[in-house]
């Protein structure tokens, strides 16, 4: 399951929540972060997630996929001789090519995700996972990221890179086993972008978009009639009562405009739209993700 969407929509929280959900259902699950964001480390305060599989809780693992480390691992798996790998990594030409070739980092990252998803793991010390959840890069970059294997398959017309890139492309576009979830926010532009992203992912990359999660939906705490009464209160009162009435009016206004955005998203998205509540918490930790995980279906 690949989780994507524009920046700041809560992809990491949703990814962790999806992971918790799958783990709670008894599936061995790993949540992967890419591009060294380490956002999940932030969520689990006492655990540093690096380029190794860390068990967070029962059935739930996490890994932060570092492209350089993935490259080392990949080359070692290819060469099978550590000394040869080390020689290669010391050579100027290799380092030059590894740094200069655009998209290579993305390619080895996807390669690592593929490796994690195999039941016959190449990394013999690794677990076998039933579910792999990827906290993918933001919109725009997300499409480019998922297209990388095909691009490489086209560049290298024959040879090992070609066949491996093709394997990765088939892995990403395998509708049976790989799905994409888009995370959106209930605001005008994020809704537009999510709809556009879904279109690009389906028509250009060819992946299956299974779900759109509308994250951060405010509760409807007040009715229209109540809002009118609060409006009067805000106009006539002073002090805390006025401030509280204004805060309530802001909440009412936002909740209402968010419902309109939800309706727009439902009209524009092809995949089913699920909503997730806004969490009034200063900092989102594992408990917040756990509560969200109970809302996921």
């Amino acid at each position: 399951m690949i989780v994507t969407g524009k920046g700041g929509v809560g992809k990491t929280t949703v990814s962790v929540a999806l992971g918790m959900r799958a783990a709670a259902e008894g599936r061995r699950t790993i949540v992967c972060e890419v591009a060294a964001q380490e956002n999940a480390s932030r969520m689990f305060e006492h655990t540093t997630v690096g380029f190794h599989e860390v068990e967070l809780e029962e059935n739930l693992w996490a890994i932060s996929i570092d492209p350089d480390e993935s490259m080392r691992e990949y080359v070692l798996l290819q060469l099978k001789v550590r000394a040869m790998r080390d020689m290669l990594f010391r050579s100027r030409i290799f380092n030059y090519l590894a740094a200069a070739t655009p998209g290579l980092k993305e390619l080895v990252t996807i390669g690592k995700i593929w490796e994690l998803a195999q039941l016959d793991r190449k990394v013999k010390t690794g677990c076998k996972y039933d579910t792999v959840i990827v906290d993918a890069p933001a919109t725009g970059h997300g499409v480019g990221f998922l297209q990388t294997p095909r691009t490489f398959a086209n560049i290298a017309r024959v040879g090992p890179i070609h066949s491996q890139a093709k394997t990765l492309d088939s892995f990403i576009t395998d509708h049976e086993n790989t799905g994409v979830a888009i995370v959106a926010l209930p605001e005008e532009m994020p809704v537009n972008e999510s709809a556009a992203l879904e279109h690009d992912l389906v028509s250009e990359v060819g992946v299956a978009v299974d779900r759109v999660y509308l994250n951060g939906l405010y509760p409807e705490r007040f009715s229209k009639e109540e809002a009118e009464r609060l409006g009067e209160l805000a106009a006539t009162e002073d002090g805390a009562a006025k401030a509280a009435a204004r805060a309530a009016l802001s909440e009412w206004g936002r909740a209402r405009s968010q419902r309109a955005q939800l309706a727009r998203l439902r009209r524009r998205a092809q995949a089913p739209v699920k909503t997730l509540p806004f969490l009034f918490e200063p900092d989102l930790g594992p408990e917040a993700a756990r509560r969200l995980s109970r809302r996921l279906t």
């Binding site: 050579s91 560049i155 040879g159």
Partner: peptide, 20 residues
């Protein structure tokens, strides 16, 4: 050393790609 590195790389990525 570099010639060896190149031949190792050819094994990984294939000669055609290097030539391209």
């Amino acid at each position: 050393g570099a010639t060896v590195a190149l031949s190792v790389m050819k094994r990984i990525v294939g000669f055609d790609l290097i030539a391209d």
